[in-house]
Design a protein around this nucleic acid. Structure first.
Length: 346
RNA sequence: UGCCGGGUAGUGUAAUUGGUAACACACUAGUUUUUGGGACUAGCAGAUCCUGGUUCGAAUCCAGGCCCGGCAG
């Protein structure tokens, strides 16, 4: 941000938390014409907590003396994110709702609403960097420990063209310090875990998926116990099996037969390759095959791999076998710090 | 109902062959980069099949009973 005078308009997605509050502050200081907006998303049951966060966001907007909007995306969020989430589980896969939410809601609907307000940009508190040449590219942030680029792989040029990530060049600690020194009204908690699930995922799925007890089987076919529904598990899962003499890990799940196969050998969950579908390239498809850094889960450091085309899909071959690659999760590709794109694991 | 082995926390095992019950898993909580999962740390348990007996002292020895595997037929 080098703006100091023009008044380009920016709409900041404000959750009431530290990151988005500092985002708004930074933009204002940089001379942008800033407004804030809260997104109301779908929640089961009462919305008490969300309303509170909206209040906080509004207070912060007021204290910054910027206009404040509230968008109700409840229905759309339910349709795009929650229903997708359930559908994936129903098929025995492991969805990544945050990826979809980013693409459909935050950088989809929100962006659209923002355009209707005639703003030039939207901004969020994501830790990621954008570099603009003739294309806009996403890079990992300065604070590698907060890197959120994993969740942004579905974005495209149309969207990125209107996006700002002011926090990309800051350490999380600096952001916190700024928030403290700003004396912002008390801030909302940062979100962890699936935002629309109040307690246990298990309970949520149980309520929506019609779970039935089924068998837990060992690799050699021995019946070891019962589970409450095969949907509930994901590959590599250890908790919740209730088996003794372990630890046991979910090796396969068979939703049709409502059966879970477990192993004691972690090694058996390692795979050298995967097939990815629904590929998105952020600034165009590169020449394949190519060597990249990949991540198959948010919470991991990248590993080297080679990408090849296979049918209409992408075959990812890792230099080192990866553990518990779960269908439905995202695999993303980097070249150095640049996020090239990603896909959904089959 | 001629013959062996065994019954210990929710589960699986251990306890120098008499000395005052341990370990793992499960479970619970916390930590960890907006998902699932994983990992790490901590916590948790009146559990010695029953009844008698021997002994200062028994999960360990003895007797009887009940139950469970199996060798047997």
């Amino acid at each position: 941000m080098n703006k100091t005078n023009h008044s380009e308009k920016v709409l900041v997605a404000m959750s009431g938390g530290v990151d988005s509050s500092v985002t708004a502050t930074l933009l204002k200081r940089a001379g942008f014409d800033v407004a804030g907006a809260f997104m109301k998303l779908w929640r089961p049951g009462d919305n008490f907590k969300q309303d509170k966060n909206e209040e906080k966001a509004k207070e912060i907007a007021d204290s910054l003396d910027i206009p404040f909007y509230s968008f109700n995306f409840g229905e759309e969020f339910k349709a795009e994110v929650v229903d997708y989430f359930l559908k994936e589980y129903r098929q025995g896969r492991t969805p990544n709702p945050c990826v979809v939410c980013n693409n459909e809601i935050k950088f989809g609907l929100f962006l659209k609403q923002a355009s209707d307000l005639n703003v030039d940009f939207i901004a969020t508190g994501h830790y990621a960097r954008l570099k603009r040449n003739n294309k806009v590219n996403i890079y990992r942030p300065k604070d590698k420990s907060k890197d959120q680029t994993y969740f942004l792989w579905q974005l495209d040029q149309n969207k990125l063209d209107k996006v700002l990530f002011p926090l990309g060049n800051f350490e999380r600690e600096e952001v916190e310090r700024m928030a403290d020194s700003l004396n912002l009204p008390d801030r909302a908690q940062e979100s962890h875990e699936v935002c629309f699930i109040p307690n246990e995922i298990k309970d949520f799925l149980n309520k929506h998926l019609d779970e039935k007890p089924g068998k837990i089987i060992s690799e050699d076919g021995e019946e070891l116990g019962e589970h409450e529904g095969a949907y509930l598990f994901t590959l590599g899962q250890r908790k919740g099996l209730g088996l003794s003499n372990g630890p046991w890990y979910v090796l396969e799940k068979n939703v049709k037969e409502n059966k879970i196969v477990v192993t004691k050998e972690r090694e058996n969950l390692k795979k050298k390759e995967l097939i990815a579908d629904e590929i998105n390239w952020i600034s165009g498809k590169p020449d394949l095959p190519m060597k990249v850094i990949t991540k198959i889960r948010y919470n991991s450091s990248g590993v080297k791999a080679e990408l090849k085309e296979q049918d209409n899909k992408l075959k990812v071959t890792f230099n080192e076998s990866q553990w518990a690659i779960a269908p439905g999760q995202s695999v993303v590709f980097y070249s150095g710090d640049q996020l090239l794109g990603g896909g959904v694991i089959q």
